[in-house]
Every structure is written in C-alpha cells, then in structure tokens.
C-alpha cells in the first residue's frame, strides 16, 4: 500500500518526506545537516538557559536548506518555487521584510544595450543614489555599483580621472564619464569562476547565484573594468529602506562573502522598465534599450552617433557605449 502518510506540510519540514525520495550526494548532505540542526534544536530546547522558539528552530532548518540548495540553473520549476518560498520566508524571519523574489526569465528576442552620453552627464551622481536604494546595496561599507569619473576636457584618461570628487558640479573645463558592469558579450569574469556561480543570460545580463558563490574573488581580478563588488560583511540595509521588489539573480538579500555587481536592474528591465540609474538621471545622459529592435533608441544612437567603448582592445565586447552630442 503506497498511501502517502504525510499530510500537507510546508516543503521539507517533515524529514520523512525527504527520506522517501531518491537523493543525490548534495541533498543527502543537506538532509544530514537538517537532521543535525533539528537535533541540536531539540537538544537546546531541553536546556532552560537556551530555550529556542519554534521560529528559531524553523530558521535553523531553513538556513541548512539554503546552505545545501542546488545551483539556480539546475533547479526544476518546483525546486525554484520552493527556493523562492524559502528565501522569502528567511527574509521575513531575518529582517522582517516582505520581499517578493521573482525568477522572471529573459524575454525572447531581447538583448540589452546601454549608451552613455559623456557630454550630457554633469556628475550629479543621482544614478548612484538610485542604484543604492533600488538594489539594496550595503550601507555599511557603502557599496556602489556605479562610478562617475571627473576628467579634464580633451582626453579620456581614466588613470588621471577622479571618481571621488565632492564639490559643486559640473566643474568648468571638465566632463564626466560613468562606469558600471558593461554586461560584456565576451565576459572575462565568467570562465574564471571555479564553481560556475556566474554566467551570461540570453538577454546579455551577466548574473551571479549568490548562494553558489564561494567568495574566491577570481571574477573581480578578471574584470578589466572593476565592476564587481565584494561583501566583506552581511549587507546592512535599514529595514525601512529595503526595496521589496526583488529578483533571485538581482537585488535580493546577499550573504557575507559573496560577490555582486550591476545587473542592469534585472528585476525592472525584464518587466519592460528602465534601470533605476536611467530613470533617475536628471540630464537624460543614459539611453537603454533592446539591441535587437531596430526601432529602439539605443539602435538610433549606435547608428547616428560616434560611439566608443572602454578598453575595446581587450575584446570583451562590452554592451555599453559612450557617445557625445
């Protein structure tokens, strides 16, 4: 008789359900750890000095399951849903935030491209501000994906440029050039990852599975544009400033010791919206669109303006162009 003895419980809560299905090594490890955690929780529950609430026990279990989850690209639909449910619950327990984590896939026929008008940018850094708020960037170490360089008119020389200017802008005789992740068509950061935690999506966005990243920082060394950022500690975002509109591959809660970077606001752009930086720019210096759409503004810029890319000689083929009026 194969009657299912398990009633409708949240996934993974009853370990008996896991034992009845074939498991691979990783899942077995997870199971073992979950059992240990449950055991530890049970043991600690016996000692009056260290009494744990049901919520604490749930947190421990969910953390073990998070520790042992699969690679994002190898998850089935059901496993994805289960993972999202778990991460949303974890965000609720850890930070008391009601995050919605999307797993929206790339739209067919879409390849994102970006153009930056160096004669329009006035160095206000409103894009940086919007990026920090939109992507839940760490306020403690002040992570910023975007750098705005102040340079003297006449030559593009990043070695002589100043990214830390703090005076009224625009400064006479200077121009401003912004960098971020360029979502290269030939990204040097991807093949160096020893665990395959970073890859390029069909719409051109280079993404990271934060749960799979081991924090070796090889990708940071490989990137010729210094576009990647490392979490030296768990990101610190004030609860009232958390953006609850999240994506698994984008702005969701990161852990200590993983690498992150600009994803062209994957949670926004995959729903047809503009990246936060382009929306915040007060001068209209940022043009974003679909490179495969001949009617798009980005294609108009590429067809009608003189454009250049940074360090083109490296062959990384950035999908981020600079142009001037």
């Amino acid at each position: 008789m194969s009657a299912d003895p398990v009633p409708d419980l949240p996934p993974g809560v009853d370990d008996g359900t896991l034992l009845q299905k074939p498991v691979d090594r990783r899942e077995a490890l997870g199971l073992l750890m979950a059992g240990l955690a449950a055991g530890a929780a049970a043991a600690s529950a016996c000692t009056p000095l260290n009494a744990s609430t049901p919520e604490q026990r749930e947190l421990k279990l969910l953390e073990w399951q998070e520790f042992t989850q699969k690679h994002y690209r190898r998850m089935t639909e059901a496993e994805r849903a289960e993972t999202i449910q778990r991460l949303e619950r974890l965000a609720k327990i850890r930070h008391n935030e009601d995050a919605t984590i999307a797993t929206t896939d790339a739209q067919p026929g879409v390849l994102f491209g970006y153009a930056f008008n160096v004669s329009k940018c006035k160095g206000y850094r409103r894009c940086v501000e919007a990026c920090i708020n939109e992507n839940n960037l760490d306020r403690h170490q002040d992570t910023q994906y975007i750098r705005i360089f102040e340079m003297e008119n006449g030559v593009v020389n990043l070695d002589e440029a100043d990214p830390t200017y703090q005076h009224e802008v625009p400064l006479e005789g200077h121009f401003y050039l912004g960098t971020q992740c360029f979502q290269c068509a030939n990204p040097p950061c991807v093949p160096v990852c020893p665990v395959g935690a970073t890859w390029q999506e069909p719409d051109g966005i280079v993404v990271i599975d934060y749960n799979w990243c081991v924090g070796c920082r090889a990708c940071m060394a490989a990137c010729p544009y210094w576009a990647r950022r490392f979490n030296w500690s768990a990101p610190d975002v004030p609860p009232e400033e958390v953006n609850p509109n999240q994506h698994y591959l984008g702005n969701r809660d990161r852990k200590k010791g993983c690498v992150e970077k600009c994803t062209f606001c994957i949670h926004r752009t995959r729903e047809g919206r503009l990246p936060a930086c382009a929306e915040a720019c007060p001068t209209g210096a940022r043009v974003f669109g679909n490179l495969l759409d001949p009617d798009s503004e980005i294609r108009w810029v590429l067809a009608h303006k003189t454009v250049f890319r940074l360090k083109e000689e490296l062959g990384t083929e950035p999908r981020f162009w600079y142009f001037s009026d």
Binding site: G123, T143, P163, T164, Q166, P170, R229, G284
Partner: peptide
C-alpha cells in the same frame, strides 16, 4: 520639461556622496 525656456542652461548642484574606495577595498574604479 528639463530646460527652463527663459534660462535653459544646466545648473550647478552638489553631487550625491562620493564612493569610499578604501572601504570597498577595490581599485579606484
């Protein structure tokens, strides 16, 4: 919507805070 028709030039403003390069531990950019 951007240019005041009677005074259309771009105005001087204080920028958002600068990056703290030593805290992010990275190279200049």
């Amino acid at each position: 919507d951007c240019h005041n028709p009677h005074d259309p030039s771009v105005k001087v403003l204080i920028p958002f805070r600068a990056p703290q390069l030593e805290r992010t531990g990275g190279h200049a950019p």
